Amino acid sequence: MKMAPILRAFAAHQPPMPVVLVHTGQHYDKDMNDRLFEDLALPRPDINLEVGSASHAVQTAEVMRRFEAVLDQHPARAVVVVGDVNSTLACTLVAVKKDVPVAHVEAGLRSYDRRMPEEINRVLTDQVADRLYTTERSALANLQREGIAPERVVFAGNVMIDSLLHNRQHARAVDQTLLAGGAPAESLANFQRFGLVTLHRPSNVDTAAALGHLLGTLRDVAQRLPLVFALHPRTRANIERFGLGSLLDPQRMLLLPPQGYLEMLGLMAQATVVLTDSGGLQEETTALGVPCLTLRENTERPITVEQGTNTLVGSDRASILQGVDEVLAQRGKQGRMPELWDGKAAERIVGDLWQWLQRHETAAAQVKG
């Protein structure tokens, strides 16, 4: 979702900027992977490292090992990394050690929760990247507190919203998504108004106590509003492992397999409220004007709370139910579109990167000369 608009901007740039697309294979489900590339009209990767799943240490190390060979075979003027996954940090470390400039898209976001692996990836990537592209102005203060010079930072806007605005007209119809997910046709009338749920954070789903508490709370929510629950494979496996299936109400909770981008876009746009622990969904619901209740104690995307439709409710049952009740009473957050979430972030990033590379390479040549 982040790379697709960047690739379009590279393709449209004059003069041309040739690109080699490397897919690390960190997210490795073949069906979902193929579907995502098709939904986003992404070109097939030039290189797929096929790393797959493993512990954080093993996965990061394996991406580094395989990506180093790619850089040796394809000398690059710069490496562009996005977001905060293990691949982001791994490819950054390889590039900087080989003296290749790194541009980090979605820089400067901070939850200030070092228990989150993504937070470690964000902090370390930003420390060594050369060009930092931020989605909101507050990110600059985060970076300056960490000693990063402001001249390395460019406020460019949000490429996730580029993708959303580009694809919104292609969002899948909700009824078709529900039927494809196994919903009986006669049950669709019950889901004319619904809440959308996603859960995948380890702190929420990796222990029986945490997951059981949230599922019990969601069961109570479902008595107020039917829920469509797009089940992450990790969450589904843990529900089965911990024997928590009885907490799911089959009459009021419709369980779906992992959804494609266009299906999720359609579900979000039509939902009465979204309950999630996903960072991306916090941004997308703000752009869509849909109330979002984030089942976390913190967020690295504070602008979605300050200006958008997002409310942090944590895992507290009373707070979650109160949030749902406020939405149902039409007192949920309306929010507004944040600055530069206008569908043109990728154009600004590619334009700036071109100019920065020209200056950087000229300066480097003068030093050598």
Rank of each mutant, 00 (worst) to 15 (best):
M3Q: 10
P5G: 15
L7P: 03
R8M: 07
F10G: 00
P15S: 10
H23L: 02
H27T: 13
M32R: 00
L42W: 02
P43Y: 05
L49C: 07
G52Q: 11
G52P: 10
S53K: 13
Q59K: 04
T60N: 11
E62T: 15
R65Y: 09
A69Q: 13
Q73V: 01
V79F: 05
S87C: 06
V94Q: 08
V100Q: 09
E106W: 01
E106F: 04
Y112A: 11
R114D: 08
E118F: 13
D126N: 12
R131S: 04
A141R: 06
G147C: 04
I148P: 03
V153Y: 03
V154E: 05
A156S: 15
I161D: 02
D162R: 06
H170W: 06
L178P: 05
A183D: 06
P184Y: 10
L188N: 04
L199V: 13
H200Y: 10
D206H: 12
T207K: 00
A208E: 14
A209R: 07
A210D: 08
L211K: 06
L215G: 09
L215N: 06
A222N: 13
F229W: 01
F229T: 09
G243W: 08
G243H: 08
G243C: 09
R252K: 13
M253S: 10
G260N: 02
M264V: 10
G266Y: 11
L267V: 09
Q270D: 13
V273C: 15
V274F: 05
T276W: 04
S278R: 01
Q282P: 13
E284S: 05
T286S: 14
L288Y: 08
L288A: 11
C292K: 00
L295M: 06
R296V: 04
G308T: 12
S315R: 05
R317M: 08
A318W: 03
A318Q: 15
Q322W: 01
G323T: 06
V324M: 10
Q330F: 07
R331Y: 04
R331M: 10
K333S: 03
Q334Y: 00
G335P: 11
L340Y: 09
W341S: 09
R348V: 14
R348I: 07
I349E: 02
G351T: 10
L353W: 02
R359P: 00
